[in-house]
């Protein structure tokens, strides 16, 4: 069946997005929000009114930005890795490690201090990026150099971070949760970073030579190799970028609260896995990933607010809203296509 959202006429979009799939995603999200706003304005007292009130409030925007940052940024990172041919399902681990490292380093430097004129909290932020990039680098070496199975190596990255971060927290702070730093990075920073990273990623993938090399590396690495571009270097670049971007996401997540929470599934709580869904959902297009990430995060934020509103609906049911919507949207927009050589090792001849 042809997806009906692809045919909704929106002239401007056609110049910007040539991908039918992403286009329908954007049309769907914007359309839903628009309808909701319209009903909210028309019937302020109804459920739609309540919903619109929640959706269009600043506090929802703030928590959406906070929740979306790790999803979108890790998702963007995942695009770079997977486009190059390395499926990185360790994004969750990268988020965890950067969330912890950022809080740890910020607290070591001490809030109120600065290094080279940079306030402690931003030093922590950079440390988070560095930690995530380092771990991604290890993952890259294992997968590209030693040809380990990418899925297993990715799971290892997650499990290592899941164990290591709370353990280090216990060693340094005496508990799996770190104390609160008493300072944080405002949600507007997160929002700006998300938007800038999305636009930059889109440009890198679609307009630069590097983007073409990434695509070739994931689709037909041999074609790239025979024209003299090193496939491993392109793949390392893709994997390291997934580390950098996930690092930004993890640091933003932890520092927006000023604390690392290491109990249970840690404060990352599966956002790295949702990031994978987000970029698949966005069909490897950063704009689509942004849309998908904001959709998930927004629904999550709304869902939390809805619980507080006290409708006579069980909370557990309300919590499923984001996932139900995901399934509905997925059914509407159709399917994605993996890069042809994703998951395959590449060996140059001789």
């Amino acid at each position: 069946m042809r997806n009906p959202l692809a045919d909704v006429p929106v002239p401007l979009l056609d110049d910007l997005i040539d991908d039918e799939y992403v286009r329908s995603l954007v049309v769907g999200v914007v359309g839903t929000l628009g309808l909701l706003g319209l009903f909210g304005l028309l019937f302020p007292g109804s459920v739609a009114g309540d919903l619109a009130g929640i959706v269009f409030s600043t506090s929802t925007a703030a928590s959406t930005a906070r929740l979306a940052a790790p999803i979108v940024l890790a998702g963007l990172g995942g695009i770079f890795a997977e486009k190059s041919g390395v499926i990185n399902i360790g994004l969750e681990g990268l988020l965890i490690i950067s969330a912890f490292a950022s809080v740890y380093v910020a607290s070591v430097v001490g809030i109120g201090n600065a290094v080279l004129g940079i306030p402690a909290i931003w030093i922590g932020f950079m440390a988070g990026i560095a930690a995530s990039t380092l771990l991604a680098g290890v993952f890259g070496v294992v997968c590209i150099e030693f040809k380990a199975d990418q899925i297993i190596a990715g799971l290892a990255v997650w499990l290592i971070a899941l164990g290591l971060a709370p353990f280090m927290s216990t060693v340094f702070f005496g508990g799996v949760n770190t104390p609160n730093l008493g300072a944080n990075v405002g949600w507007r920073y997160s929002a700006v970073m998300v938007v800038v990273a999305t636009v930059a990623s889109w440009w890198a993938l679609n307009r630069t030579a590097f983007g073409k090399h990434l695509e070739a590396s994931g689709e037909n690495p041999k074609a790239l190799d025979t024209v003299g571009v090193s496939v491993s270097r392109v793949r390392y670049a893709g994997v390291l970028l997934s580390g950098v971007l996930s690092g930004v996401g993890g640091s933003a997540l932890a520092l927006s609260i000023g604390q690392f929470v290491g109990s249970g599934e840690t404060m990352v709580q599966g956002k790295g896995f949702i990031a994978i869904v987000a970029y698949l959902f966005g069909n490897y297009n950063p704009l689509g990933t942004l849309g998908a990430g904001v959709l998930f995060a927004g629904l999550d934020a709304i869902q939390i607010r809805l619980q507080q509103l006290g409708y006579a609906v069980p909370d557990t049911l309300v919590q499923t809203i984001p996932y139900v919507v995901v399934i509905v949207v997925l059914a509407l927009v159709g399917r994605t296509r993996l890069p042809a050589a994703a998951g395959d090792h590449y060996e140059t001849e001789e």
Binding site: A209, K212, H213, E215, A216, E219, N220, K222, A223, L224, T226, V227, G228, V229, A340
Partner: peptide, 22 residues
């Protein structure tokens, strides 16, 4: 020119021609 063509299917003709020497 190899027996099995070294081309990237989803990319266009010109993108393939200049690949690596853009």
């Amino acid at each position: 020119i190899h027996q099995h063509f070294m081309l990237v299917d989803p990319m266009t003709v010109w993108e393939n021609v200049v690949l690596g020497n853009e």
